[in-house]
């Protein structure tokens, strides 16, 4: 029992559990809604928000884990989404470190930009491994919709990621 509690207290395990639920939302309700014909990317929000909440390094690792989970349900090569999401998480954290006193709107802005970069990198990465056809003019619409919606979602998700990725409390003996 103590082991289970200790496991749940580990940030990356908590991220895995939350990631499972987010992935469930991604493959069901978000896949169904499609505003302007675009699927909203909640997994990318999770990656970018991790970077905003805990810095570039943690953002990269969290983005990699979230992207890896996403890759496991897609038919694209395993590791491609992980790389892209890691970059998005890193970028969000890195850019946020330059902001003197981050506000809710600066987080929204950075989350939106990181998501836009992630969305652009995905078809580029697909083209690099030889999967043609993803890099079309439609990418512009996808980037616009994903960036705006992710910017809005970044504020609550950043708070969620602060809780998910907080270090385990050290209890004095």
């Amino acid at each position: 029992m103590m082991r289970l509690v200790a496991l749940v207290e580990r940030p990356m395990f908590r991220l895995f559990l939350v990631g499972l639920v987010a992935l469930g939302l991604q493959t069901t309700v978000l896949n169904d809604l499609r505003p302007f014909g675009v699927i909203l990317q909640i997994m990318l929000v999770l990656a970018a928000s991790s970077g905003l909440a805990r810095g570039s390094e943690v953002g990269a690792i969290a983005g990699f884990l979230v992207g890896f989970m996403y890759d496991l349900v897609l038919t694209t090569p395993l590791g491609l989404g992980a790389t892209v999401f890691a970059i998005a998480g890193y970028l969000a954290g890195f850019a946020n470190s330059f902001v003197h006193e981050p506000t809710w709107w600066s987080r929204m802005l950075l989350g939106g930009v990181a998501s836009a970069v992630g969305t652009l990198l995905m078809p580029l990465a697909l083209a690099m491994v030889g999967i043609e056809g993803a890099l079309t003019t439609r990418v512009v619409v996808i980037i616009a919709v994903v960036a705006v919606t992710n910017a809005v979602m970044c504020v609550p998700f950043e708070k969620l990621c602060r809780w998910i990725l907080k270090d385990p409390e050290v209890v004095p003996i």
Partner: peptide, 18 residues
Amino acid sequence: RVIALLVLTSVLLVTLDM
């Protein structure tokens, strides 16, 4: 070190899957 490790893991995964 973390970034290098992530990049290497990604390359390994993509290669294995492809």
